[in-house]
Design a protein around this nucleic acid. Structure first.
Lengths: 201, 201
DNA sequence: ACTGTATCTTAACGCTGTCAAGACTCAAAA
DNA sequence: TTTTGAGTCTTGACAGCGTTAAGATACAGT
């Protein structure tokens, strides 16, 4: 009974998510269809509907994984006392851009309109994404307080604007509007400089 | 013969562009299909193919119009000597965000991956978009020179990073990740502040 | 008047997400 | 041990999409 597939897959939910991630990485968002996904997993076109309400729910689940990975990146990229603020900011900017460039479809899914505007995001995804943003905001607040304990800035707005800059850079990179190759290090450097001046008031 | 449509529309190219823009405004990018467009104009599903190579070419034409409008906005928003740099920057940021928010689908088309990554942009669109960016870069260079004639910055990188910030803000607004309403003025203010500090070194 | 070209139409293909109805499997209740 | 019911998966179907091929119509230039 090793060659024959059982009628019940047994672990279809996880298999679907994993294969979807693979297809996403290889062919982008447009290349991911439920039919192709079913075939890749060795299951019928509509089998996924017994584990996800619809395609949107599957995309939301993938995006949510992405936010967990983003949280992981932010948690592991802390400002150690031995490095300068400038170096740390550069590292953070480079790390964020790499996160987007190494998994473009995942980043697109996490922040793109496919989920957030065209369809309704899962409430689970909404809370996860919100947590990411809140964590980022706390980190910004920390930085501000360390630099200048009497700063006047609104941490929420600082987070909004600075994240928007990072996000804009990523979008221009991913959408092929800026060159993706050697420009990137220069642009990262410049973005870190901008952030640094901004945080120092 | 006023009630009966002639076999030859006579002005189909313009009519298609205009109606496509209307649908885009009303229903977004996903709501625009060639079949629906044909019906709206009173013509068959495939009539558009005699005026555009394919759907991508039509989208590119619409996006190109958008870049002309963006150029118009930039040209008319100049820094007059009687206003402060801060006021001017705020005006520019607000104007740019309004440009995106008032015509979200058009902005999405101009900068989104639908054209730039998923398909191949028309060479005509490419040059028009490139002109927009070059003009923006020149304006930045002007500002830098006015503020400090001995500045050390690379205008191209300044343009890349600052435009990325504006673009990121727009995307977050349009994709419904940031609140679109009263936050906007605060965020605009903060973005202008950030830009100002950055340009002043 | 004729001919060719530009314009427009209908038919069809393969793709998509999704729903409805049926088939299979398995665990728990009787 | 048999029955029942829920969980899982499949096939069939529908409407919509972009696009191509082949044919119909109108008009401009010879």
């Amino acid at each position: 009974m090793t060659t024959k597939q059982p009628y019940h897959h047994g672990n279809l939910y996880e298999a679907l998510l994993q294969e979807a991630d693979t297809i996403l990485q290889r062919e982008g968002i447009e290349g991911l269809s439920l039919r192709k996904l079913g075939e890749a997993v060795g299951v019928s076109r509509t089998a996924a509907y017994h584990h996800f309400a619809n395609k949107n729910a599957l995309l939301c689940a993938l995006a949510e994984e992405g936010f967990h990975q983003l949280n992981h990146f932010m948690r592991e990229t802390q400002w150690h006392a031995e490095t300068s603020l400038n170096d740390y900011l550069l590292l953070f900017v480079q790390g964020y851009l790499s996160f987007a460039i190494e998994h473009p479809a995942r980043y697109e899914l996490m922040f793109g309109r496919a989920i957030w505007q065209r369809m309704e995001p899962t409430s689970s995804l909404k809370t996860t994404a919100h947590q990411s943003f809140r964590y980022y905001t706390e980190r910004m607040e920390q930085l501000l307080s360390t630099i200048n304990p009497q700063h006047q800035k609104n941490p929420l707005q600082v987070a909004q604007v600075s994240w928007a800059m990072l996000h804009g850079l990523c979008r221009f990179m991913l959408d092929g509007i800026y060159g993706t190759q050697k420009d990137m290090s220069h642009v990262s450097q410049e973005a870190a400089t901008m952030l640094s001046h901004y945080l120092h008031q």
